[in-house]
């Protein structure tokens, strides 16, 4: 067992883990962060996407021990503390960017990462930006709309300053 300490959605947790424990299993089973889910074995589906030190990663392809000392943000940590949704969460709702919702946490986390890098993506850029996330329900069109709508809102609300990673920068 190895001692690991990480800050997840603003709270620091210290635990003993087996080195083989995947970050996603640590989040779900030790920390109760069940909003992040597992969809495959091969790093293809992206359902488990979280932010590790501000960057989107597939938490099924990171060991918990590798996240020692890191800052992890999950789908449960992106809304404002008061409950106001992140613009990307809002846009997924508004544009019907989800059906069963299983891919949604990963899809939202990947989309936020994309928008940080490219605040005004074209249709094709959104599609490429979320190529690592599979959805079986939506055919993606409304997800693409949602990401573009969120981009618009984030641009108008941040007015030139980059929105901080974990806050929702509401208009």
């Amino acid at each position: 067992m190895t001692r690991v300490s990480m800050r997840v959605d603003g709270v620091t947790y210290t635990d003993e883990v087996e080195p083989r424990t995947l970050l996603v299993h640590h989040l779900r089973e030790a920390l109760g962060k069940v909003g992040t889910v597992v969809g495959c074995d091969t790093s293809n589906c992206g359902a488990c996407t979280v932010h590790l030190d501000g960057q989107a990663v597939k938490s099924c392809t990171v060991l918990a021990v590798q996240a020692d000392g890191a800052e992890v943000t999950t789908i449960e940590g992106i809304a404002e503390p008061g409950g106001a949704l992140h613009p990307v969460q809002k846009a997924f709702h508004e544009m019907h960017g989800l059906q069963c919702g299983y891919c949604t946490p990963g899809m939202i986390m990947a989309s936020i990462d994309l928008l940080k890098e490219n605040p005004d993506p074209s249709d094709a850029e959104v599609r490429e930006g979320i190529e690592g996330n599979l959805c079986r329900c939506t055919g993606y069109q409304n997800i693409v709309r949602a990401v573009q709508q969120a981009a618009g809102e984030m641009k108008s609300s941040s007015a030139g300053t980059a929105a901080p990673e974990t806050t929702g920068a509401q208009a």
């Binding site: 990663v57 597939k58 994309l114």
Partner: peptide, 9 residues
């Protein structure tokens, strides 16, 4: 190579 998340790691 792969996708955005994989390229991060």
């Amino acid at each position: 190579v792969a996708d955005r998340q994989t390229r991060r790691r």
